[in-house]
Design a protein around this nucleic acid. Sequence first.
RNA 1: GCGGCUAUGGCGGAACUGGCAGACGCGCCAGACUUAGGAUCUGGUUUCGUAAGAAGUGGAGGUUCAAGUCCUCUUAGCCGCACCA
Length: 801
Amino acid sequence: MKYDYKAIEKKWQDIWEEKGVFHALNDYTKPKFYALIEFPYPSGSGLHVGHGRTYTALDIVTRKRRMEGYNVMYPMGWDAFGLPTENYAIQHNIHPAVVTEQNMVKFKKQLKALGLSFDWSREIDTTDPEYYKWTQWIFLKMFEKGLAYKKEMAVNWCTGCRVVLANEEVIGGVCERCSGEVVRKVKSQWMLKITQYAERLINDLDTVDYIERVKAQQIHWIGRSTGAEAEFITTAGDTLTVYTTRPDTLFGATYMVISPEHPYLEKWSGKIKNMDEVRAYQHNAAHKSDFERTEVAKDKTGVRLIGVNAVNPVNDTEIPIFISDYVLMSYGTGAIMAVPGHDERDWEFAQKFGLPIVEVVKGGDVTVAAFTDCDTGLMVNSGFLNGLSVEDAKKKITKLLEETGKGRPKVNYKLRDWIFSRQRYWGEPIPIIICEKCGYVPLKESELPLKLPEVESYKPTENGESPLAALDSWVNVVCPKCGLQAKRETDTMPQWAGSSWYFLRYCDPHNKNAIASREALEYWTPVDWYNGGMEHTTLHLLYSRFWHKFLYDIGAVPTSEPYAKRTSQGMILGENGEKMSKSRGNVVNPDEIINTYGADAVRLYEMFIGDFEKAAPWSSTSIKGCNRFLDRVWALQELKILDGGYSNELESSFHKTIKKVTHDIESLGYNTAIAALMSLINEIYGIKCITKEEFKTFLILLNPFAPHISEEIWEQQGFGGMITSQKWPKYCDEKCKDDVVELAVQVNGKIRARIEISADEPKESVLKLAKNMPELHVHIAGKILAKEIYIPGKLVNFVVK
RNA sequence: GCGGCUAUGGCGGAACUGGCAGACGCGCCAGACUUAGGAUCUGGUUUCGUAAGAAGUGGAGGUUCAAGUCCUCUUAGCCGCACCA
C-alpha cells in the first residue's frame, strides 16, 4: 500500500487541532520551554519556503522537548502593520485591515499545511486594538521617563514612498522598500532614546547565548569608541570642543574642521570674512542627498574660515578652521582636530589644501601617507610626550587635559536615537495631544487604545503629513490638561513598534489589565530559544532588547534580557543560486511542493538541504531523496516485525542514532540528524527485519522531522496512544560502543592496512598484531622502529626510519 | 577601509577536543524486476592509472608520528557597515 500523504497529513493536522495537542499549559510548576520564531508580516504573496526553514527548525526542537516532558510554548502571530499593506490598500482602495485579514487567513492555512506545532490559542495580531493598546502604553511610559521626545531634525525622506525612513531603512542611499531616492529633509520627529541604553546593549551581550555573528554585528552597529574630548579656544572667543580617539596626537593637530551644519557658523557670521563662500558650501551640502554625499567621499571638499582661527591647547599654536562635509554633525561634537600625519582623511584633506603635516608618532613616512598604526611607534615632536608609546601618551595627555580643565575622557557611540515617527496611516497612532499652552500632553491610560479612525484616503498628504492629518474631527480635541483647543499627533509608529514586545504578549495574550500577568511573565520569560533572520540583527533584535530593558527598568518585566538564546538560519536561494525573487523568476511556491511531495517531505528536505546556518540553493531533484526516504519508512511495515527489544545486530546502531539525533537537534545539526536516520534505515533494510522496540524508537526519532507519517504508522501498528505523547528515547554511552572495531594501520602516517580487533584488546596486543601484518612487511622490514602510536578505536601508526 | 563569514567530488553537503577525507542525499553508471517506466530493488561512483600504486580539502610555506582541522603569508567570493574623527 502506497503512502497517501494527502489524506493522512490532513487527518493528523485536524486531530492535533481538535485535541489542542500543542497548547502550552498554564501549569507553572512544570519545567518550561519557550521557543520563538519571528512572527511574519502577512504579505500578499503568502508563505515563502524560507519561512518553512525557520519554523520547521524550531518545530523540531519543540516536538522533541514536549516528548522530554517540558511545558512548551511555541506561539504564532502577525506583525501586520506596515507599508506594503497600506500601498496595496491605496492602489485597490480596500481598507488595510481587510487586506491584512485576507493575508492572515492565507498564511495560517499554509502554516497548518506544514504541520507546524504552533499554539494557535495564543495567536496575536499587532493591528488588533487590544494588542496595540499596550504598544501605545509602552510608548507613554517612555514619554513619561523622558525616553520619547520630539526633535526637529534632518531626516531621510524617501521621495518614492513620501515617508520618513529610519537610518536602518536606507540601504546604499536609496529606500530599502521602493529603491527611491532618499534626500535630507527637516521635520519634527518623535525619537526614542535608544542611545541611553547603548552601553548596556553591548555589555549585556555577555549574559546571553547568541551566535557570535549576531553579537559581533550588534556590537559593531552600536559602535562604541573610547577617546577624549579636547577644548580649543578660538579667536572668536568661543571654545570649540572636539572628540578624538587619538588624543596622543594632539601635538600633530595642524588645523580643525567643523561640520557645515555646526551652529557656531551662524554665531560667527560677523567675524567670518568669506561668509558668502561658507554659505554657498553649506547650501550645497544641505541639498546633497546622503547618496551623493557618500559618492563624492573620495574627493574632499571644504572652505577655510577667514577671520576665525583656533589655538592648539598643548602648544599654543594658532591653526586654521575649515568646514567640510566629511565631518558629521551627528557624531561626536561635529568638530574635529585634524592630524594629517596620522589620519588618512585628514592627510588627504591636508594634501588638497596644502596644509602642514607634522609627524608625532615615529614609524612611517608622513610625506607619503598617514601613519595610523598605534602599536609600534613612539611619540616625537610632542613635548612632554616624546618617547612614550601611543598607549601611554593617550593616558598621559588625557589626564593632563582633565587636570587643566581642557578636556576629559569620553566614550562615543555610532548608534543614533531611533526615529519613531511615520507619516502614514497603517500604524499605531501616537497617543499624544499637542497643546499650544501645555506642550505634548499624553493620553490617560484609561483612554487607550487610541484607535485608528476610518479615513477616506490612505494616501499621505503631499506635504508629507499622515492621512490622519486630513481628518479634522479626529485631529481637533481639547487639551486634557487645560481644556483649551488642541490637536492630536497625527504621526503613527513605525513598523518595528509592535514587534518590539510581542513575545511578552504570548505569555498571557488576552490580559486586559497589563501586557501580561506577572506570574505568566515570571514563568515564561525569557524566551529560551529565538530563531530568526540575520537581517533583523540591528533592527528588530536590537529594538526589542532596548524595549525589554526599559520595561525591566520600570518593573514591568522580570528579566533584563528578552531572549536567552538566538540562532539564525541561512537563506534558501533559488535553484540558480541567486536570492529568490519574483523578478528573478526563481521563487519556489510552498503550496505546490507540498501538493507534490507532502508536508513531511518538504519539512525533511528543508532541514536536509544543507548547513542550517548557511544559505543553500533549492533543488527540485534533491527533494526526491527525502521523498524516497519516507516511502522506505512507510515500507518498514512490510518487513518482518518481531516482538521484543533491540536486536543484537542493531542495538549499538540504535543507541548511536538516538545520541546523534538528540544532540544534533540542539546544535542546529538538522541535516546530520536526518542523515543518521537514513543510515539507520539502510541498516534495517540490510537485516530485513525489525523489532517492535526498534520500530517505535525509529518513529519517535523521526517524529519531530516528519510528524504526520510517524503518527500514522504508530497508529496502524497499534503501538498505543499518540506518538506526540510518547517519551523521547534514551541512549546509553556504553551501548554506543562496538565490540569489534576496524583500525587503520599506518606506517609514517600512510595507511598500509586495516585490522579488525576486539574493542577491549589491550594496547600491547594490538600493536603486536598490527606489526605482524603481512601488508606491513615491505614498509617496516630493515628499518628502525622509532615510535608506535595507538589511538584506541581509530588507528595505529608506526614511525620508522 | 572596518566587522563577520566562506572555499572539500559532477551537485548539496559530512568529518567531535588534530587521528581512516568524501557520511547522508542528489546525479550518473551497471544489473535485476517489469503490461518498458522520470517507478522499485541490488551493486558501483574523488581523480589519475589496466594494475601495484600515486595524488587529493582555493594557493604557497610551516608545526606534528599524523593537518580539511593549528600557525604565517596569499587569492577569490559572500554578507553587514561605511568620511563615525
